[in-house]
Design a protein around this nucleic acid. Structure first.
Lengths: 352, 352
DNA sequence: TTTGGCACTCTTCATGATAGAGTGCTAGCC
DNA sequence: GGCTAGCACTCTATCATGAAGAGTGCCAAA
């Protein structure tokens, strides 16, 4: 039962899966004998199918309904049988066009995600990473009514974050400007976590020795750089085109869809899944059906690839759709997209 | 056929609709005769029902299936028959808690929207208006790589917007700071459209007479205040809890849901609908079924109320759900929410 | 004006028959 | 040993049928 799969069996499995992906119907021995290119009788095919079923690569929904691929079957298919379609230059153009240089990571994520969703008619997703060092570019304080201060942070040259903090007392505009100047001068270019630890250090060192200016600045900054406030916020994923998934029969059960959509909304499960996908190395990675480990995604597959800047893996683009998807087209699309994003983010390729 | 509806008919209509809202099943004459509180035979009720049907207030899905309310029926119901439930203090607290003072409009919109969705198990929505005068509080320029400049705008003391513009030449940090200072000094506190027209005016007046500082500032600002860039962006609506709608039988048709979700995503239709709802005056406003004019919403009702600052209507909160909803509970919830939002936004109630 | 009664209609559900698809197995062929 | 043809078997999908139940409309009587 174990051992190598004969080339003929492989070929039959390939044709079966291609047919099933195309039509969504279980494939019978007769149809397979006719359309496989091999000159075999349906009876012979039946023997082969019985063998494939014993290996757990296909299964029969019921006694007389032909065979459909199992997750393991898909796995073998994408690992060793798949002949990927070259991606059309039209598709490349569509994605490249949308990658206007000089957008923020968030904006890029949004456009790329929706581009992927559009090209594949499934849900596109882009993870923007948390691990990336966040460098403070610029900080600005503005006094609001009351003791509230509006803080504007520019991080990594692109991302703008703003938050409102409550201060123990009211500060004048002049104080705020001075504090900002001090912080900009002192900490610009450093990572947020670095800024944070340095702040703590300075605080501990000598509170009394500081002049009032420094004190204001540091009191303020203390609040801004509380870890959860800013730092963790950056890690997120953007999902576009979820409604596309409503078009697939195998996902059209309302309850299932609801679960999926809520997972997308809360993003927790999705992120944990993406983390696993990002774990090792570059290139396209695929989760099929139950391989994801989450029941929710049991009828879904995930095709992802990483993008990087300066050789360092930053995040991840991909699509999520029904297990029965056109892998031969989706894989290269995801692959190319990841490369394009890498290129767009790499400063070397940008006009400096 | 026309003319007044007798009190007895009204009462029967009321009981019918309440029953239908509760159970979702067509209501028959027998059930109605028993549970109406009136001492009538089913036969008499049948006569009344025939009358109500002739008036277009109820209809029979088929010959022997009891009656269900029509949109007109619901309309009569909410206009003159409805006895609203007092909103529980628990609900009030839930909303009030979430309204942390000093959040940006966008943040408020998001929390309120999701609070409404949670309380009603339907989709909550909040419109933040475009008509509101947008006053420039502060502007800041930061040079990025290339000829790109990151612009940070603080509007109305709360909203922070940032955009990246391409400039014809590269500016130094010093130039950018000076330009920002000039603009802040000159235009702070004015409306964006005001700033825009004044800029045009200055430009026309005398380009040669300006010193280079002013020129830089104005060239830059020219791009920032292009009408579509900033000004229209503020008008938006936030929808939360769309997945809740998947729980309702009458909306569980996947195709229909898909349409709805896509409308929510694109927001165009939703905004046009909300515009109509916001059109006149305060208080709770209700669109039932086809009254919305959009086919998509034909099985949905919209319950909205406005919130205001300084007596001026700013925007709109509400929920969207199936026509068959518990109006008696939803209406007061929306009403109270709108009041709470008004209160939270009114500077008078905030610590100054 | 209300009520009781009755015939009628329509849906829903279970039942059973039928056709079609596909399999597994066995016997025969190269 | 591998391939093929044939056949019995199983399972599904579909359709028609019939019975039960719910509710109406209308008529005649109180």
């Amino acid at each position: 039962m174990d051992g190598q799969i004969s080339p003929r069996s492989q070929h039959i499995l390939k044709v079966l899966i291609e047919s099933y992906i195309r039509d969504g119907q279980p494939v019978g021995s007769k149809q397979l004998a006719g359309g496989s290119g091999l000159d075999l009788s349906s009876s012979t095919v039946r023997n082969v199918l019985a063998d494939l079923e014993a290996r757990g690569l296909v299964r029969a929904p019921h006694t007389s309904a032909g065979r459909v691929p199992t997750s393991r079957g898909y796995r073998v298919f994408v690992d060793s049988l798949l002949t990927v379609q070259p991606v059309t230059s039209d598709n490349v153009r569509q994605i490249a066009q949308r990658l206007a240089p000089g957008a923020s990571l968030k904006q890029i994520a949004a456009t790329v995600s929706s581009a992927l969703s559009g090209l594949t008619s499934m849900a596109g997703l882009v993870m923007v990473p948390g691990g990336m060092p966040q460098r403070l570019r610029h900080i600005e304080f503005l006094s609001l009514s009351g003791n509230q201060v509006l803080v504007i942070l520019v991080i990594n040259d692109r991302e703008v974050q703003n938050l409102i903090i409550e201060t123990p007392r009211r500060y004048s505009e002049a104080e705020l400007t001075q504090a900002a100047n001090y912080l900009n001068q002192q900490f610009a270019g450093q990572t947020l976590s670095g800024v944070r630890s340095r702040l703590l250090h300075e605080l501990r060192q000598a509170r009394e020795q500081m002049d009032s200016l420094m004190q204001s600045a540091i009191t303020m900054a203390e609040r801004v750089f509380e870890p959860d406030e800013v730092i963790d916020k950056a890690r997120d994923c953007v999902i576009a085109g979820q409604t596309n998934l409503m078009g697939f029969d195998e996902l059209s059960d309302v309850a299932r869809l609801r679960g999926l959509f809520e997972a997308f909304h809360q993003k927790r499960e999705v992120l944990s899944l993406l983390d696993r996908a990002a774990y090792d190395g570059q290139g396209v990675r695929i989760f099929i059906g139950e391989e994801s480990g989450h029941d929710l995604f049991s009828d879904c597959s995930l095709v992802t690839s990483t993008y990087q800047v300066d050789g360092e893996v930053l995040g991840l683009v991909g699509i999520i759709g029904p297990t029965r998807m056109a892998y031969d087209q989706v894989i290269p699309i995801v692959d190319v997209t990841a490369r394009l994003v890498s290129a767009a983010l790499n400063p070397a390729d940008q006009p400096l």
